[in-house]
Design a protein around this nucleic acid. Sequence first.
DNA 1: GCGGTGACGGTCG
DNA 2: CCGACCGCCACCG
Length: 108
Amino acid sequence: MRRPSTTYGRIAAVVRRVPRGSVATYGQVARLAGLGRAARQVGYALHALPTGTSIPWHRIINAGGRISLPPDAGGIDQRLRLLAEGVTVTESGRVSLERYQWRPRGRA
DNA sequence: GCGGTGACGGTCG
DNA sequence: CCGACCGCCACCG
């Protein structure tokens, strides 16, 4: 699979590799996608995903280990999806990166 | 091409 | 722990 040449394509390609039961941060995705510090753009791209996409967007949280998506904007759904995969998420949306952050091999 | 904008990230109070 | 600021970068009007 050739890596997509578009920014959104690259972001999607990286997010798709995040395994079930694990999470990744926006900044982590940005770097793995070769976007440097364009972490904000990752959130922007995920927000643009169509409803019902196969891309596991709910596995992406911020560097503070918290759900960044406002509750009334889908954050509730994201939390439930993570819980369904066995990821512990507190009521305030806190996730232990120590336990669940994805550590891909090889590439940085 | 310019400027506003955001599902970010790090720092400081 | 929470809010305020500032720096970053690609998207969009």
